[in-house]
C-alpha cells in the first residue's frame, strides 16, 4: 500500500501544514485586492506572498521541511520527485523543476505533471503508480505556482476572474480568485500502516471529451473520476473536497457530477475562499488541508459562500461542521477537459 509519511504547506497564510490548517479553520484568508504597478492588468483579487518568491526555491523549501525528521535520503535512487506546476519558473517547467532534484542530489530526473489545474491530484496518482511498480520506495510530490502577469492577463482575457472575493457554489458567484503557494507530500510504499497514518485508496483521471476551455455541462470526466474512486461505496467518507473555483461553469459542472455519482447529500466544500486558485499547488495543498480536517472531524466551511446556487444542489456551508468518517475524496478539473480525483483514508 501507499501511505503519506509527511507533508508541508508554504502559503501566504503561513508556513507549515499545521499553521495553515489552524488559520483556515479560523476562517482566515490572505485574499486581497491587487493593482498592477505597470497598469496593464485590471485590479484583481488574489492570495499572494508579501515578497516575490522564486518557484524552485519555494519548492525546495517546501520539500526540505516535509523531509525533516522522516528519515528519507532524498538523494537515493529509490526516491522519485514528482512536481506539479503549470508555469514553473520563466515558463521553463523541466529546467526549473530539475533545479529541485539537483539541489537534493537526486539523479532520477524529475517527472513534471502538467495537466492544467488538475496537476496536483494527477501528481499524487502518478507518484502512487510509480511507487507500485517497485522501482522506487519513496516519492516526494511538490505542487507550486507563482502568479505572474502572464497568468493574470490570461485569466482576465477569459473574463474568468471575479472582481470581488470569490464565492464558491454561490448563486451570485462571479469567477475565481488566483493564489500562490507551495505544498509537498512524502509518499511511501509499505506493508504496514500505523494508527493515524493516511493510506492512498484510489485515483482516477478522465477527459470530458467535450471542450478545451470549458467543462462538460454533464460532468462526464468528473463523474468517471468519482466512479474510479468509488471502491465499493462512499459510506466511510467525511466529505468531498471539490475544486469549487467559483466560476459559473465549474461549480455547476461539479454539482451535476456529484449528484450523478449519488453524492448529492454528501457534505462538500471548497477551499478557494481561503487560498484562491493556487493552480499547480491546489491539488496537493487542498489534499493536505482535507487530511487535517478529517483528523479533527470537521468539514471546513466554504469561505465566501452565502447561498448555494448551483444548477444541482450541493451540501455546502460557509461554517465548519462536525463530521464522522475516516476519509475524503479530492476532485479537480481544468483546461484541456481534464478531471482527476483521489481518495485517501486514515487508519484509526
Amino acid at each position: 500500500m501507499i501511505i503519506k509519511v509527511s507533508d508541508n504547506i508554504i502559503s501566504p497564510l503561513g508556513v507549515g501544514s499545521e499553521e495553515n490548517f489552524i488559520r483556515v479553520s479560523k476562517g482566515e484568508s490572505m485574499l486581497r485586492r491587487h493593482e498592477d504597478a505597470e497598469g496593464l492588468l485590471q485590479p484583481y483579487y488574489a492570495s499572494l506572498f508579501t515578497e516575490r518568491r522564486v518557484f524552485s526555491e519555494l519548492c525546495i523549501e517546501a520539500a526540505e521541511e516535509a523531509l525533516w525528521g522522516c528519515g528519507v535520503d532524498a538523494s537515493s535512487d529509490k526516491v522519485l520527485f514528482v512536481v506539479s506546476t503549470t508555469k514553473g519558473e520563466d515558463l521553463e517547467l523541466y529546467h526549473s523543476s530539475e533545479k529541485i532534484v539537483k539541489h537534493f542530489g537526486n539523479k532520477n530526473g524529475v517527472i513534471v505533471v502538467s495537466n492544467a489545474c488538475t496537476s496536483g491530484v494527477c501528481a499524487q496518482i502518478t507518484a502512487a503508480r510509480m511507487l507500485n511498480t517497485g522501482k522506487y520506495d519513496t516519492a516526494i510530490v511538490v505542487g507550486c505556482d507563482i502568479q505572474t502577469p502572464f497568468i493574470v492577463s490570461g485569466f482576465q482575457s477569459f473574463k474568468a476572474l471575479s472582481d470581488e472575493l470569490c464565492r464558491p457554489f454561490d448563486g451570485a458567484r462571479r469567477g475565481l480568485n488566483l493564489g500562490e503557494a507551495a505544498a509537498a507530500m512524502i509518499l511511501r510504499r509499505t506493508d504496514d500502516i500505523e494508527e493515524g497514518q493516511w493510506e492512498y485508496v484510489a485515483g482516477g483521471i478522465h477527459n470530458d471529451a467535450n471542450h478545451i476551455s470549458g467543462p462538460s455541462r454533464t460532468g462526464e470526466g468528473a463523474l468517471r473520476c468519482l466512479n474510479d474512486v468509488r471502491n465499493g461505496g462512499f459510506g466511510d467518507l467525511a466529505f468531498v473536497n471539490l475544486h469549487g473555483t467559483a466560476s459559473l461553469y465549474n461549480d455547476d459542472m461539479e454539482s451535476v457530477a456529484i449528484n450523478r455519482a449519488g453524492l448529492g447529500e454528501m457534505p462538500v466544500n471548497s477551499l478557494k475562499g481561503y487560498y484562491g486558485h493556487t493552480m499547480g499547488a491546489a491539488g496537493v495543498l487542498e489534499t493536505i488541508i482535507s487530511m487535517k480536517a478529517v483528523e479533527h472531524n470537521i468539514v471546513l466551511g466554504t469561505r465566501g459562500l452565502v447561498t448555494v446556487g448551483t444548477v444541482e444542489n450541493v451540501n455546502a456551508s460557509n461554517e465548519n461542521r462536525s463530521c464522522g468518517g475516516n476519509g475524503f475524496v479530492k476532485l479537480l478539473s481544468g483546461f484541456g477537459g481534464s478531471n482527476a480525483a483521489v481518495r485517501w483514508r486514515i487508519k484509526r
Binding site: Y94, V113, T126, N207, A209, E220
Partner: peptide
C-alpha cells in the same frame, strides 16, 4: 491531449508529462 480526446470522444485517461 484534450484536442485528441475531444476529436475522438475518448473518455479514458488524458495526461501530459514534462520529462
Amino acid at each position: 491531449t484534450g484536442e485528441i480526446a475531444i476529436r475522438n470522444k475518448f473518455y479514458g485517461e488524458s495526461g501530459f508529462y514534462v520529462v
